[in-house]
Nucleic acid binder design. Sequence first.
RNA 1: GGCCCCUUCGUCUAGCGGUCUAGGACUCCGGCCUUUCACGCCGGCAACACGGGUUCGAGUCCCGUAGGGGUCACCA
Length: 524
Amino acid sequence: MVRTRFAPSPTGYLHIGGVRTALFNWLFARQHGGQFILRIDDTDQQRNVVQALQPILAGFRWLGIDWDEGPTADGTGSSGPHAPYFQSQRARRYADAAQQLLAAGLAYRDYSTPAEVQAERESAEREKRSFVYSRNWMAETDQQATVFEAAGRTAVVRLKMPREGKCQFRDLVRGEVEFDWAQEQDHVVQRADGTCLYHLASVVDDHDYEITHVIRAVEHLSNTPRQIFIAQGLGFSLPEYAHLPYVAEPGSNNKLSKRKLEKYLKHHEFKKISDHGQAIADRIQLATAAETFNPVIVDFYREVGYLADAIINYLLLLGWSLDDKTEEFSRTEMIEHFSLERVNKAPASFDPQKLFAFQGRYMLALPIKQKVAMVVPFLQRAEWIDAPPTCDTAPRLTQILEAAGDRIKTAGDILDFPEFFAADDQLEFDEKSFEKRMRKPAEAADLLRDFRHCLEVTDSFEAAALETLLKSFVEEHAIKIGQIIHPLRVAITGKGVGLGMFETMSILDREACLRRIDAALARL
RNA sequence: GGCCCCUUCGUCUAGCGGUCUAGGACUCCGGCCUUUCACGCCGGCAACACGGGUUCGAGUCCCGUAGGGGUCACCA
């Protein structure tokens, strides 16, 4: 039975790089008919865990990455045979493990102060040798401990790491890996107050939760020897390891970090995506603190109206590929084809522009009904339609979205088309376009007046009929189509660019078109 | 600095000794189509980090160099 896990810290947001790691874990588990477990690294108890966890769990749910065991959906409890899945609730278990290591002679009580160890570290650095702790304050017997304690010292528990030999293990991504034990320090696993550190907790959890494959970011590669030491010391069998390359920032191979947003925003591709999202957020009065609303955070995409499938598909290809041409994968296909062997070793840099391209493809393929459903919340938040929607909302939105074709790349893009939602007398005009198409061409106003009359008396307001109408109008007046259609568009939509003119008029209907043309002529 | 890792177009990648005058995708730039925009279609720019080997033959194997990265916490 394959069991993988992802271990988020409750930080309040879901990082795009973290999602990629989680995705690979999830894919691997699903492929093998195994389980995917979520474990919460909340040993830093300062924050409100439930509150900080909620957006993360919501993010996973939205992305369709479901977990078999872990926190309950609302983040307040645990669900699964190995509960709890919060590290903060397992302190006792870790402390017992530390005791076990101590009893086995694989760890020792250490009475040094941080300053003393630091001093050793610095002098090693001065002398240009690599630091090895002197173990001067090591207590292996109770007598030694008593002496240190009499001096008012308190003990942490340190690993008694081997000082020779090599630690070898197989990594499913990187092949055979080896480290010199001598490079490893006597890491602290338990503090004086009894709380345990991450590496111990992590190893104990992986064992207790019966994790078979530890698939994680490469940052942890060099932590693996000490974890193997702990696991073996505790008598655990070792999981398989797979270390994934990290996700790099756009256009470089530095690790992607939410702290360097300023820098990313100078990247035109990144900025484009960011600005696009920002524009949508502004229209719906969404709070957009840079901390939680930016293209490094999953929430950004949800708020702007991206499709989870598009993001997942993009992330799948960040560091993994099937062959030289296949790019689109359904969930089923990715579960079928994914393999750790084909994960790249080099970091892959995050390219929001390409993600956007995937989004475009997925949006195009989305059935119209789903598109309508996606767009509704945006219109409601912008207060462009009623909530709940009236019964003519769906048919009308269907018409608009069909006419829009692939112009709407994310659901939030519907807000680029106020002309379908604004009252006729509330329509805003783009002054540049108005100037260029209405004021500047001398004949524009007269043509528009003439065509207005045609619209008024014509039988059908179907798009096809309107096209025929306009074409014959053009012929009669011996003009080029642009001479009438451009002023018409500005008059009716207030903008220089938009959807197909005939569909637009048809959707708006005759009365609205006539009123808008009148209003436009009046403001000349 | 020690240890470890990585290195094909701007980006994601294919390539596992000859089929590579290096393929695909995104971006970018032309052109066509066209009522604007978008789409679509056609075309274009653009890469094997460098230096040595090994070999009849190297993007593919080996060794160096350079560059980049990770890690060396009583953080996770």
